[in-house]
Write a protein that binds this DNA or RNA. Structure first.
Lengths: 226, 226
DNA sequence: ATGGATAAAGACCGACCGGTCTCTAAGTTG
DNA sequence: CAACTTAGAGACCGGTCGGTCTTTATCCAT
């Protein structure tokens, strides 16, 4: 029994020992633990899938015990729902950030960005959760609220791409959703049957087609030559 | 101990008792059991998903015991692979059959048929298996062989649609694959956020995209006005 | 009929699952 | 400091999982 260190009364006084586990508030403890749990859940779902992401692997990866987990989440489902919300937010944030980094992006750039984002961890996890929700009524019920908001935000974010202002909301919604499906499907299939040539062709043709739709809109809005 | 019925020597002689379990060859026994197992697996995956389709539920639904199952399949994985092959064949067969029922179908009819097929059991099961394969190396390895053949056959079947002869192989392949992704994604999302209006609109968009590809090709082959 | 092979049944096994419970550690409040 | 609350640890539980094994039914060849 060493009972070392003068029991750390010195939170004040600026002790030089920086390696000692700094004192944290309850709120900090709580939040970092929750973050570690959700991060571990995201990583696990991306790597081994929703079904194989057991509480055991989550605890192992996060370094949090079962007791710690159940302090913050009442059930596995609750943790999964929180994870869904988190990946949704990150996905949107990433899209907005990268889109604004590109100044005045061409359609093809925006599409490529979208495709890349759909191959990224956040969206893969969201996809896994969606697929799991199809056959899990509880998850489906909880996810549908999150889902509708998420879907709407994706469309909203797409408004950052120049040219989209020409589309009425309903058209843009349908178009963006279709692209999401396309890139989701591509991301899955390339795990089994990769086809980089077709991927590139698909991207280019999607851009051309979108361009075509835009031009058509313009010529209808301004029936120029007559 | 009743020891009823004269031990059924009378396979010959046309006994009127039709409810007695007719005598079957080993081959018949084997094949019907296998069929019952695979049918049960298909139904279970469609209803409760790949992960929840345990051997227990398969045995329950099929009325076959564990012993019976393991006589014909060495592992759950083997059964799943066989199931994948079966749904693949059925999917293709259905497409071909329905496509040939429509005499000279318009593009939009073919697309609607395709969409319906992607909502049907066979394709949903195939989709579940694909998603599971992403995070299950064994399943992925076994499915990739089946998959490539299956994907090729889908494209081949699409040649039955009038007009497709105008497409070069690479364009048609890309187009059909894109449509598959689109309808797969739509089929999943409508479980959480159904949107029938957008679905109909999307169908038209798909038709327009196909026509766009054609026009584009023609205008390049015959650089008309100059 | 009889002996041998194949088909099917179901009890059984260790591993792992989600969730509970008890106890200790750490922060908070007076 | 002491009393109290919150955070976290980890042994533990009943249930289910994929897979094995022994036993019985059925078909086939002779």
């Amino acid at each position: 029994m060493v009972d070392d260190a003068p029991s750390a009364t010195g939170s004040r006084g600026g002790r030089a020992d920086s390696s000692a586990p700094r004192r944290r508030t309850q709120r900090e403890r709580r939040e970092t633990t929750i973050k570690r749990l959700i991060d571990a859940t995201i990583a696990a779902i991306a790597e081994v899938g929703y079904a194989n992401t057991s509480l055991g692997v989550i605890c192992e990866r996060s370094g949090v015990s079962r007791g710690g987990l159940f302090r913050h989440f009442d059930s596995r489902l609750d943790l999964m729902v929180a994870t869904a919300a988190e990946v949704g937010e990150r996905h949107i944030a990433q899209i907005r950030r990268r889109l604004s980094e590109l100044r005045d992006p061409a359609l093809i750039d925006a599409l490529r960005l979208m495709r890349d984002r759909h191959r990224a961890r956040e969206n893969v996890v969201w996809f896994e959760l969606m697929v799991a929700a199809r056959t899990d009524p509880d998850l489906r019920a909880r996810l549908s609220e999150t889902g509708r908001r998420f879907f709407a935000e994706v469309v909203e974010a797409s408004r950052l791409v120049p040219g989209t202002e020409l589309f009425p909301a309903e058209d843009l919604d349908m178009l963006v959703t279709t692209l999401e499906h396309t890139f989701d499907g591509e991301a899955i299939r390339r795990e089994i049957a990769p086809d980089p040539v077709a991927e590139e062709r698909r991207l280019n043709l999607a851009a051309e087609f979108a361009e075509f739709l835009l031009l058509r809109r313009i010529s209808r809005t301004h029936p120029a030559d007559r």
